[in-house]
Design a protein around this nucleic acid. Structure first.
Lengths: 343, 343
DNA sequence: TATTAGCACTCATTTAAGGGGAGTGCTAAC
DNA sequence: GTTAGCACTCCCCTTAAATGAGTGCTAATA
């Protein structure tokens, strides 16, 4: 069967209406809602066709129609009209360059949740490709060394090392110079075994310390890699009856609190969303069991220096895709303007 | 009317039973449940008295009795028998001294939630009384100075300062020595204006930088003071039907996500719980609107060096007070053993 | 041939009524 | 002071009927 222009219009009308109301939509509603000037009977025939093609279905006999995942997919891929939204508050929020990335991300999650009325999550930028900017060892206590590692974009990692031997100031200074000379400006991938060997040799009797520091750097990176995720607006799911029953809500909230699965989801989105950076997952497409009745829209963002992260918005399948995609795209643009090129 | 021994026993039985089942408890149940060997009729008379005194009430005519807030209060204050619980996993978890306090606290919240099946929250230690251990300024970039501030207990704060003038290594070293000489070992309260004036004088032409650094320290402290809170097991509230309806659950979850109110709650608990450090809030006693159907048990803990924080457990009014208080006390003891005296 | 009006039918949801049961208060007997 | 017995209350569950939105199908229409 062919999906002609009229069927498309009707499908679109069904989806639009369902997005608004969340109720199954009947033929009479469409008959009045559209400018097609067709009677409900005609609509009924068309809807029967659309059902046969798998774009819509009835939750039970003699109920109106609901879009299927396939229907949503077509809508998102082909029928959506992105609305350009006001993201003024966001601009204000982002305009001041933040030293504390954490604060920025938390706030961003919060504003997004408020703006969209869905649940939001943001993964902190990954530092894999980022360049090491600065390493500093300092003696804090007898036997305790503080290692500060600064990464491009001012992401800072601290680590306290316990050392057996006493280190005098001079040695510490030497080690600092050694480490910075070799490691400065490198991305984390670029640090290799050969380099470590040379450094150890140069450190002489203190090679053990070099090992410890390298371990600490590796540790700091690893800590960064089980990535931080900020969420907001979790309780917005109660706005949508189809998600608000105890079973589903409990599972969803648990998913949002544990964050483990969110991380995997965002990373996959990050990996896939190469082109425009915006990705829409409908229902079971997410692979996260507790989100099978949700849709997720993700956007990757860039903060310069190769630091990329991902924003995700989770709502019911009947989420306002137009608005969400529009908002995310606006944020992407603004982040790009503010941070993207400068590094 | 007098609350004699028998009435107490009956009240206790009512509460115990209600804690278990969550259902109103009737006279016949008590008649069998207790070792008083009284008929249900007698129990009925006694229960009528207890109701008149305000310890229990009927949700509707011809239903069993439910403890009132006053009843719970009496129970917690006078009738509870703390159970010594196995907190073995906790011991294992806590036994390794953590460099990262954050990790420790997160894990602690998680284990507690799992153990008790309630929602938990932990406030990070407050550093107000803690002593400054170490300050280090380093040049990261032209015009960017990294200030690292280490506080007793290895809480580390970073701050990036932008400076107008160029600073050479020597000047930086001098400033480092100056700052550490004056500020090291002081608690944050002890830093005063006179001291700052002296430091500025000694810094000479670089007094502006000293100002900036002091500001940064103040800033770091302020950041620490809007205290970090870790939560876990929020979704446990769905286990208790009396909290699981949409309205209440949504509000509670919002409270847990926003954390603002939790902070106030924990701080109040911290302020009040001077003696044993364990505090029980029943129903409206918490002052947090969304928790009016909950009870909250808090415990302050100490990690040495004046660093104190608060743990809170939130559950239904019929929470297992004995178990919760026992568990919290056990944790207090263990933390004290492991961290308390050493600093 | 495409569209429409009409009608019988389906089924979720709402409303009402009735029965069961848990638990109480009261009274009278022990 | 305690207990057995009984009438009474009221929640809650089940069942039945009424409601109504929406469909599929058929026959008439343009």
């Amino acid at each position: 069967m062919e999906l002609d222009e009229r069927k498309k219009k009707i499908l679109q009308a069904v989806i639009r209406n369902y997005l608004e109301t969340g109720e199954p939509v009947g033929s009479r509603t469409i008959s009045k809602y559209t400018d097609l000037n067709l009677s409900s009977a005609t609509i009924r025939n068309e809807m029967a066709d659309l059902e046969e093609m798998g774009y819509i279905f009835q939750p039970h006999t003699s109920a109106g129609r609901i879009p299927s995942d396939k229907g949503y997919r077509l809508y998102v891929d082909a029928m959506m009209e992105e609305k350009e939204r006001e993201v003024v508050e966001m601009r204000d929020m982002l305009v001041e360059r933040q030293d504390k990335m954490e604060t920025l991300l938390k706030q961003m999650a919060r504003v997004l949740a408020q703006n969209t009325q869905y649940a939001t999550m943001i993964s902190a930028p990954q530092t894999k490709r980022s360049k090491l900017k600065f390493i500093q060892l300092s003696r804090v206590d007898a036997g305790q060394i503080l290692a500060v590692i600064v990464i491009q974009g001012n992401v800072i990692k601290n680590n306290i090392l316990s050392v057996e031997e006493e280190l005098d100031d001079e040695t510490l200074l030497k080690l600092n110079i050694l480490l910075n000379t070799y490691l400065n400006g490198l991305s984390i991938d670029e640090i290799n075994l050969a380099m470590i060997a040379v450094m150890k040799q140069q450190a002489g009797i203190h090679s053990a310390i070099v090992s410890e520091v390298i371990d600490a750097v590796a540790e700091a990176i690893r800590a960064e890699e089980d990535l931080e995720i900020y969420t907001s607006g979790t309780n917005n799911i109660f706005r949508y009856p189809e998600l608000a029953d105890q079973q589903k809500a409990s599972e969803l909230i648990n998913t949002f609190e544990e964050k483990q699965l969110l991380g995997e989801l965002l990373q996959e989105a990050h990996a896939q969303g190469e082109e425009t950076g915006i990705q829409v997952y409908i229902g079971a497409e997410t692979q996260v069991q507790s989100m099978k009745d949700c849709s997720v829209v993700t956007a990757t963002y860039e903060l310069g220096g190769g630091m990329k992260g991902t924003i995700g918005i989770v709502g019911p399948k009947r989420m306002d895709y137009d608005k969400v995609v529009g908002t995310l795209r606006a944020i992407q643009t603004q982040l790009d303007e503010l941070y993207g090129k400068k590094g």
